[in-house]
Amino acid sequence: MSFTGLVTSPSMILTDCEAKSDVEVIKLLSGLALEQGYVEEIFIEKIIEREKAYPTGLPTEVQIAIPHVHDGCKKSFFSAAVLKEPVKFGSMDGSDDPIMANIVFLFGITDPSHQVKVLRKFSEVFQDADLLRDLISTRDNKELLTKLKGALGDYIIIQ
């Protein structure tokens, strides 16, 4: 199986983010991906469309949201925002209880079949409540990136 990590950079890892809605966070993070050349403009439209139809808030112990799509993605990437105030996302399981996300991980994936291990590793992070609590309390983006790198190792590639 070929192995590909997800690219990211300090500019795509945000702390103290003041976004007020799910769409605002998604626009902000995917706009950064556009600036880096990881996605085409259509990606932003598609990822918002997808979030409305199939929300990505996860009913985990520490609630998070993981917007992602592959349309318009040129290079598989990872970005994150720790929110100053929790932002409401729809729940992936379709329940009416909204997810109040304190942290949002936004992904672009070009070919999921080549990224099984990476995606699996990330899913372990989503289940790790202690790690998530630590990430959420981080105020400096470089420190946040260091912690993420510590948890994900070679699965993220810092550019």
Partner: peptide, 14 residues
């Protein structure tokens, strides 16, 4: 099956 056929599908299949 998932919303986009990507992330959760891949992990849940495994």
């Amino acid at each position: 099956a998932c919303g986009g056929g990507i992330f959760t599908t891949t992990v849940v299949t495994e």
